[in-house]
């Protein structure tokens, strides 16, 4: 499979505080790559650095050969990477339709894209005029994903999408990730729940203290619970 995103010796941090130290990995076409690591391992910072929201201090991120670290933060999504932040970060005072419109505007997508996204999350179709802050937690997560999918991205970054959700909603989100893979979207998924990772991932990248460690296919990870315990502390 061809590589869609290549991250090479990427470093970044907040002000004087370095967080990532030379992280390297690649993301293949239509795969789900999960990031696993303890709290503070740098998972969210890695996603934010790929998006340009945290400036890279060294290294490179290439989307099909196009260097992203030289772009302004607002140009990265236009290049084809969409981001679903931890905690959803919806524009809570705006309606569902307006949140989707923000996603559509990023890459100048139109009605057809919106319809495709709403077909994936039909519950949102009934709530287009509702203020997004008044949706349930699960519906908010669906909207956060729908808003990102309005970009028709090549790469989707999902930061803990199942956090705080009921099991039925978690299953729904998992189905959506699998459906996106079937459509050819490559996904980087940050998850705390190891069972969720093993259910949906193709490969797993372990992060430890801001450094990339092993990248293994999910069957190998499943067969070696001790490795998961070592990096995440649970298994």
């Amino acid at each position: 499979m061809a590589e869609v995103l290549t991250v090479t010796r990427l470093s970044s941090g907040y002000g004087e505080l370095p967080v990532l130290h030379g992280v390297s990995f690649d993301l293949r076409d239509a795969e789900v790559l999960c990031l696993l690591g303890r709290n503070g391992a740098g998972k969210t910072t890695l996603l934010k650095t790929i998006m340009g929201l945290v400036p890279a201090t060294a290294g490179s991120t290439q989307l099909r050969g196009r260097e992203l670290t030289r772009l302004s933060a607002h140009e990265v999504p236009r290049a084809g990477i969409a981001y679903v932040p931890q905690g959803r970060r919806l524009f809570a005072e705006m309606t569902v339709a307006e949140n989707l419109e923000i996603g559509l505007m990023a890459r100048q997508k139109g009605h057809a894209t919106r319809e495709r996204v709403l077909d994936l999350f039909p519950v949102l179709r009934e709530r287009l005029r509702q203020r997004s802050g008044t949706l349930s937690g699960g519906e908010q997560q669906m909207l956060a994903m729908a808003r990102a999918l309005c970009l028709e991205p090549e790469v989707l970054l999902l930061d803990e999408p199942t956090e705080g959700l009921m099991p039925s909603m978690i299953a729904r989100i998992r189905e959506a990730v699998a459906a996106l893979r079937a459509e050819g979207v490559s996904t980087i998924l940050v998850e705390q729940r190891v069972d969720a990772v093993l259910a949906v991932a193709d490969r797993v990248l372990f992060l430890e203290n801001g450094r990339s460690r092993d990248v293994l296919d999910v069957a190998t990870v499943r067969a070696d619970p001790a490795m998961v315990r070592r990096y995440v502390g649970v298994g």
Binding site: M51, G52, R78, F91, M94, E101, I102, L151
Partner: peptide
């Protein structure tokens, strides 16, 4: 208008606005 939508998105959460292509 779209201009207003962009301004409101920036007002509510400028980081997320950037993540959706808005030149803050």
């Amino acid at each position: 208008t779209r201009v207003g939508l962009v301004m409101r998105a920036t007002q509510y959460d400028s980081e997320t606005a950037q993540a959706f292509g808005i030149p803050v």
